[in-house]
């Protein structure tokens, strides 16, 4: 990304996930999804930004980031799906739900939203085998309650 695009990309992201937002900023969320889809480096950069925010101890900030993730998975293309479908990103989600890592201090709402998203992706994106593998591991470890 050229520096100018970088700044715009980051500004859009932080606007869409700002903890000071009263409600979900759908304009900001949609603008971010559009931008990340256009830029070659968009998907990997977006997943790094999202992973960091999703691990925030602030519930509202994490929920906004998960909403951005959910929207982008619906509206963005295969390049973003493939990036989210890598263990490099899935491991960051797993850390949030796992008691061995961040799970014990993460709000229940955030943990159930992550598991709900992962489950929906196992149905909607069956070719992303790593998502299924990660979800099955969480089930085996009893982190996913049927």
């Amino acid at each position: 990304l050229s520096p100018a695009l970088d700044v715009l990309f980051l500004e859009t992201f932080y606007k869409a996930t700002n903890p000071l937002n009263k409600d979900l900023d759908w304009d900001g969320i949609n603008a971010f999804c559009e931008q990340l889809n256009k830029e070659l480096e968009g998907p990997p950069l977006a997943t790094r930004l999202l992973a960091h925010k999703i691990q925030s101890p602030q519930e509202w900030e994490a929920i906004q980031a998960l909403t951005v993730l959910e929207s982008c998975m619906k509206s963005c293309g295969k390049r973003f799906h493939d990036e989210v479908g890598k263990f490099r990103f899935l491991n960051e989600l797993i850390k949030v739900v796992s008691p061995k890592y961040l799970g014990s201090r993460t709000p229940e709402k955030v943990k159930s939203k992550i598991l709900e998203l992962m489950y929906s992706w196992t149905l909607g994106l069956p070719h992303e085998v790593k998502i299924l593998e990660a979800y099955q591991m969480l089930k085996k470890q009893g982190i996913v309650k049927c």
Binding site: F87, R88, V129
Partner: peptide, 15 residues
Amino acid sequence: TVSFHDDSDEDLLNV
């Protein structure tokens, strides 16, 4: 399902 080893990725975190 066993995923192929993808060099551009990490291994699954075991918890």
